[in-house]
């Protein structure tokens, strides 16, 4: 862990991983789209609207996974003060917010034809909406302070507090009567999805995960460059007699 926390080593590794992640994302998303839209059957109950699942479920998994990553990185940052942990969490947040928004919108588009409503305030839907606001709050808090270190610290605390919401989302459908159905893929007695639908779902999920990985590497690289630029500007300003003289 501490080996990876070194920005230079991270950059070296990231440069090697990025093309693979990007390639895998493209391949899986294309294959998943092909299977999901053309070569998979409709559902015996939902008909063709089952295809919305192939974007909704991977987006929901990513929304939860990315938040978990942010909480983990925030914990590392608070305890061990790895600057890279803060940079990773900060770079992941807008991606997670995007996935959560996607989950909400595609879920709504599936709910209308299946349930007969765009939205209900049941425990699952409400807790996912809270997740979206947690992402927004986290991003806002990161940028709310002039003192970057204070912003990073308070945002990390918020990320950790908000983590209680993640198990609530996951198990809301089992703890309470909700309109949303329980889990189909990750369950003790094996998936309750026919293999012809499970294949495109898993391909899309792999595609989403690889896409996130590639984008995260790009964004971390970008943040490390920004840090370097800030440092260089400070050095230049200190060396510049016009500025120093003021």
């Amino acid at each position: 862990m501490s080996r990876l926390a070194n920005p230079n080593r991270f950059q070296k590794l990231s440069r090697r991983v990025l093309p693979w992640a990007a390639g895998l994302a493209g391949l899986c998303l294309l294959a998943g789209l092909g299977l999901g839209l053309f070569f998979s059957p409709g559902d015996y109950q939902q008909g063709e609207s089952v295809r919305i699942m192939y974007v909704h479920v991977p987006a929901a998994w990513m929304a939860l996974g990315v938040y978990t990553l942010i909480a983990l990185a925030s914990g590392l940052f608070l305890v061990w003060k790895y600057p890279l942990a803060d940079i990773v969490a900060r770079a992941a947040a807008p991606l997670g917010a995007g996935f959560t928004l996607l989950t909400l919108v595609t879920g709504s588009l599936w709910g209308k034809p299946t349930w007969g409503t765009w939205w209900v305030w049941d425990a699952r839907l409400t807790s996912v909406l809270i997740l979206f606001f947690l992402y927004l709050g986290y991003i806002a808090l990161q940028n709310a302070f002039d003192d970057g270190a204070r912003g990073a610290k308070s945002a990390a605390v918020l990320a950790l507090i908000g983590f209680v919401n993640v198990p609530i989302i996951k198990w809301s459908v089992e703890w309470w009567h909700t309109l949303h159905q329980p889990a189909s893929v990750i369950r003790l007695d094996g998936p309750s999805i026919h293999v012809s639908m499970l294949a495109p779902l898993l391909l899309m999920a792999a595609g989403f995960a690889a896409f996130f990985t590639a984008l995260l590497l790009i964004r971390v690289r970008s943040a490390l460059l920004a840090r370097k630029i800030r440092a260089l500007r400070l050095v230049q300003a200190a060396a510049d007699p016009h500025i120093r003289g003021r």
Partner: peptide, 17 residues
Amino acid sequence: EVLAKHDETYMPPEVAR
């Protein structure tokens, strides 16, 4: 208001039949 509750089983119609 009446809403349909969907269960967690997904399968093609032929398989269900």
